[in-house]
Structures are given as C-alpha cells and as structure tokens.
C-alpha cells in the first residue's frame, strides 16, 4: 500500500524523529511512504478556538493536498480526529462535504492503522524498558482507539507495560487551553503526570505529540524520572 504521511505541525517542527519512525515501521512492513510537501496544519487551533471560518479555509486546502491518496496516516490522534471527525462537520453543507467524508474514510491514526487496517500487532521491535501508555483523549474518545496501541506494545520484545491509576484522565494540554488557562492545565498535568510517574516506568508512551509536549514539559520541570516517547519510536525499535 502507498501511505501518505500526515505529519502534524508539532511533529514537523519539534519531533521530526517521530515522522521518520512512522515511515520506518511502515516501510519495514513493506509499504511505501510519501510525504506531500504541500501539507501544513489541520486547522485544529482555529477550530477549537471557535474561529471556524478560518479553520474551514485550512481544512478545505488539506482536502486538496491529500486528494487521491490511498491511505493517510498520522502519528497524532488529535490531528487525525480533526480530519476524520471534525472536517465532515466543519465542511457539512459546503461544496467540500463529499471530499471531506471521502478523506475521513481514508485517514488513520498510526497505531490504529497497523492493527485495524493492516492487521499487524508484532512489528518486530525490541524495547527493554518499563513503559506506561498514555491515552490521548482525541484518540480515545473521538476515534475510539484503546486496544490497538496496547496490543502493539505487548508484542514488543522485552517491554514491560504497566497501567497507571488514572488511565482515562486527560493530560491537560488541550491546545490553546494550556496557555489560556495555564493553572488548570498544569493541575491536570500534575494528576496525570503524577499517576504515570507512580508506575515507576522509564517511558510514557503516547500516540499524541501534543500530549507528549505537555507531559514531558511537566515531568522535566518537576524532575521526575519518566521521559515521553512516541509509540512509533518504540515500534521503530530505536534502542533495539
């Protein structure tokens, strides 16, 4: 299959290694990856802030960028949810409605794509660490992804997966929320980050670089042990 990589802005600018890890895993499984350089942002910041006209402009443009691709795969539950769940709502009643539904049907979150679309759980990775998985809320509740990343992690050699005691709690990022309401956002990071740190894990694995930014920012500031790492990096066997 020819996979069109959907690289969110965070990944593009701050975590490029995540994008390469996605490509490495998919290529190892025998799929070709392309990166359409015309892609920019999914428009979620404006959408979440209520500026839907601006978000619509960006969304309509993205439809064109990914037109004709076989499958669009992104390493962020949040950005994928924007395309799959919110584009059809945002563009309902516009000439782009059909294209939005069409793109939604071809767009996948990375872990979900492996398990649900390709039927793969063991990608041959090794990661000799204790890890805890953090569910990003958009992945968990907008895309209903819960089992896929866990299945993938359980198949990784020498990996010890532990659940935290706040498995369904939000990390508190929420995009602009994290800077408009920083005290609430930080309080949420304390709850979720604290719970993850208590598991004694070496790494917090996530499928959302934005959650990683928040959790890693707080864990690092408070001098806690675990670092965050993206699921794709674990599966790419960076330490194998």
């Amino acid at each position: 299959m020819r996979v069109s990589l959907f690289i969110p802005c965070f990944v593009d600018q701050m975590f490029p290694q995540v994008g390469f890890a996605v490509a490495r895993v998919l290529e190892r499984l025998g799929h070709a990856c392309e990166f359409r350089a015309a892609q920019t942002c999914c428009g979620q910041p404006s959408f979440n802030a209520g500026y839907w006209d601006e978000a619509r402009e960006v969304a309509a443009r993205a439809l064109g960028v990914f037109a004709g691709s076989e499958a669009v795969v992104g390493p962020s539950g949040s950005c994928v949810a924007m395309m799959r769940v919110f584009y059809p709502q945002l563009l309902a009643g516009t000439p782009h409605e059909t294209a939005a539904l069409d793109l939604a049907s071809r767009t996948f979150e990375f872990g979900e794509f492996l398990v649900e679309r390709l039927g793969v759980t063991d990608v041959g990775a090794r990661f000799p660490h204790r890890v805890s998985y953090h569910d990003g809320c958009h992945g968990l509740r907008e895309l209903r992804i819960r089992e896929a990343p866990r299945k993938l992690l359980q198949a990784v050699r020498d990996l010890d997966l532990v659940e935290c005691d706040e498995p369904e709690s939000c990390c508190g990022f929420g995009g602009l929320f994290s800077v408009k309401y920083p005290m609430i956002s930080t309080a949420m990071a304390e709850v979720k980050g604290g719970s993850l740190a208590r598991t004694g894990c070496d790494y917090v694995v996530s499928s959302d670089p934005s959650c990683q930014l928040q959790l890693d920012g707080w864990l690092s500031r408070t001098g806690q042990r675990p670092r965050t790492i993206h699921l794709a990096e674990v599966l790419a066997g960076v330490e194998a």
Binding site: I7, V11, D12, Q13, M14, F15, P16, Q17, G19, F20, F35, A37, S178, V179, K180, P182, T186, A189, L213, Q214, D216, G217, W218, S220, R221
Partner: peptide
Amino acid sequence: PLLRAWLATRDLPRPPARSFRSQWR
C-alpha cells in the same frame, strides 16, 4: 505572555536543527 504561561510550570523541548519536511527532502 502565552509562552510565559507555559514556561511558568513546564519546560519546552530543545527544538531540532531541521524540520521533518526539510529532512525528508
């Protein structure tokens, strides 16, 4: 201001030298 709100309680990662799109090229 917005970045100050972030930095009051959280660190930011060191940005990479090159973006994904530039490295992919």
